[in-house]
Design a protein around this nucleic acid. Structure first.
Lengths: 193, 193
DNA sequence: ACAGTTCTTTGGCGGTCGTTCCAGTTAGCC
DNA sequence: GGCTAACTGGAACGACCGCCAAAGAACTGT
């Protein structure tokens, strides 16, 4: 065998993720990442292959940490209207807490990287699709039970809700006032009536 | 006096704007901008002072070209419901046409620059405020005339609609399919019922 | 103890960054 | 037609970019 890896892989990716959220892809240099992670540049390249590789790892961690829990919540089987509201309130809280300091990596990747990087674009599509699909299931179920308005297709509503969440994240970068974001979210949720 | 400026100022800013929309702020170098505008770097610095100066000029042109017309439409005095629909359909068309290639500079600036650059942040707040205010007036008028549901405040609806537009622009970067975007927009518009 | 393997650090590669400076050119005023 | 001032493209600046080779350090298996 050989020397064991010294650094904490997950903590490293988490540190890189925060750096990318703070300054974007192009705005974060390898030297910034060495400071943020505590690794030397050689170690970064040994572990991730390239700056893009580390970015993809950070994006995957972000999806796992922030998108997957939303999907799990939606799949928990709880009341449709209630669980969707929970998702929105959670998103608003998070944006209000650190939306000024840290951008959503998914929105950032969409704007800054999706055009150049097919692997990023694929991940974004995948996450969006999963979220839409989870929302669709909850909405369709809710419509059957009469909890959600049935005069619009669950597909359209699901797409709309994802779009609204993206919009909230953008707005958080301009004005992260919680009350304003929440009022916007309330209107979006009222589409389910 | 002295020699007159040779290059077309507006065309130069327009070329820079497209470059920034295509590759973002950090992703566009001064050398890229010399190729896009046809100017030498010396001329760029004489006219705009810095890369940031040219970016601000590009952002201002974007606001003038894409945000101001929306506001003018809203202020035209036409039927509330109709004019708001027009704004959304116009936005969807534009995103579907070149959302894959060219990002919305406002969303891009929010994600990539607003945290670092106060002058950018101020411009974004100003544009958002103007758009919200124009929407508010149209909505309030529509509510008085019974064309728009009056059970929600016009302020909230205006904020929500701006958020929806931002969301559509982000979604356009992931999946610019016109029909999907339009169905999302339709749901948002149905909040006015 | 030693060989073998893998991780880590260091230093620096070639190139590009934003910016500045400069010589050369051109347009307006006497 | 000179004089001057502004504009022009391009060379060059120091700094920084992403990346990588080489060597030291730490671990396992013998």
């Amino acid at each position: 065998m050989a020397r064991t890896r010294e650094f904490d892989f997950d903590a490293t990716v988490a540190a890189a993720m925060e750096a990318f959220r703070r300054n974007g892809y192009e705005g974060t240099s390898i030297r910034d990442l060495t400071k943020a992670t505590g690794l030397g540049s050689g170690s970064i390249y040994a572990a991730f292959g390239s700056k893009e590789g580390l970015y993809l790892a950070a994006l995957d961690l972000y999806r796992q940490r922030y998108a997957a829990p939303l999907i799990d919540m939606l799949r928990s089987g709880n009341d449709a209207r209630e669980v969707i509201r929970e998702v929105f309130v959670g998103a608003v809280d998070e944006i209000a807490r650190d939306g000024k300091r840290l951008a959503c990596l998914i929105v950032g990747a969409t704007v800054e990287r999706a055009r150049d990087d097919l692997r990023v674009a694929e991940r974004l599509r995948s996450t969006t699709r999963s979220l839409e699909s989870a929302l669709f299931d909850v909405l369709a179920e809710g419509q059957l039970r009469g909890q959600i308005a049935a005069d619009r297709s669950a597909t359209d509503l699901a797409t709309f809700l994802v779009t609204s969440l993206q919009g909230l994240r953008v707005m958080g970068g301009i004005n992260a006032d919680r009350a304003t974001l929440m009022r916007s979210a309330e209107v979006a949720l009222s589409c389910l009536d």
